[in-house]
Nucleic acid binder design. Structure first.
Ligand SMILES: [Mn+2]
Ligand SMILES: [Mn+2]
Ligand SMILES: [Zn+2]
Ligand SMILES: [Zn+2]
Lengths: 146, 146
DNA sequence: AATGAAATTGAAATTCGTTGTCAATAAGAA
DNA sequence: TTCTTATTGACAACGAATTTCAATTTCATT
């Protein structure tokens, strides 16, 4: 059985001599339940409803910690704020389709595109460390609706 | 012979009943000379050296106007600010390789990748309106240096 | 359990790129 | 030249994110 996000986070905290607090537990569990593409502000507002004692700064800080631990990654889809998604080992690299009407984000991966990117980089003398492919468009639901 | 960026900008201004000012002339020409991937702040600082009377707001506004005219486009490479590049008809769509060491930005285009994106979108019921592919890595100069 | 050093917290202040406000100025049609 | 209206520069305001700081909490050590 796989370790949960919280369990892996606890491991990280221990290994770095950081402390496990109630706030961190709650934030990480809320984040895990949301299943990705969540901004710090989104998560804060959600948490605030049931636990208003938790401050926004702590949510920002905890998401940053998760990212430092390699357990989440932040991505800017161009709408002004960073969305986080957890990146546990099982959920491999993927790219995104974004609906410009309703904001829906669909994940995909295409190994041919990935390989071609390697080729492009090599042709230009670059050693790839990362990449980001975002396809913007109108999803089926939205194109049916109008 | 092709019309210059300024000439096309003038056409746009006339067609929209907007006014051609000395500031706009200077900003657009500076921008054209810089050949893309320039932030408003970059351009403002550059212009400020020789023409300190031009305000930053005017540089921001003029770049926005160029974008509205379809003569420039802004892109966020994830480092906090928007970089503009001119998009005259001749300079077709392209994607970017970004060196994470020195910040160099190299343009490329790969029609096979473009076609595959269409396929991916269609498979997910999306109608593509736009896309953005950024490959991050280390350029040749930087990997030689260390 | 009690201690205490060090990490963490929430609230508020601060940062930074960008946009809005506004009175003064300039463009350009008449 | 006149007159309407767009444009300007300085500065305030914005919003996401980060920093500051005094109060609180964690947790290794007694
Ligand atoms: Mn995703
Ligand atoms: Mn480019
Ligand atoms: Zn949609
Ligand atoms: Zn480089």
């Amino acid at each position: 059985m796989k370790k949960s996000l919280l369990q892996q986070f606890e491991d990280h905290l221990r290994s770095q001599n950081l402390r496990l607090t109630d706030q961190r537990k709650l934030i990480v569990n809320s984040f895990a339940r949301k299943k990705g593409h969540v901004s710090a502000e989104d998560l804060y507002r959600h948490i605030h409803k049931t636990t208003p004692s938790i401050g926004a700064a702590t949510v920002y800080r905890t998401l940053k910690l998760l990212a430092d631990a390699g357990l989440a990654s932040g991505k800017n889809f161009g709408d002004g704020y960073v969305r986080f998604e957890c990146c546990l080992q099982r959920s491999a690299h993927h790219d995104h389709l974004i609906c410009t009407r309703c904001g829906k984000i669909v994940e995909f991966s295409n190994s041919t595109i990935e390989k071609l990117q390697e080729t492009v980089a090599r042709d230009h003398g670059f050693l790839i460390t990362d990449h980001s492919l975002d396809i913007y468009g109108v999803c089926q639901d939205c194109s049916v609706k109008q």
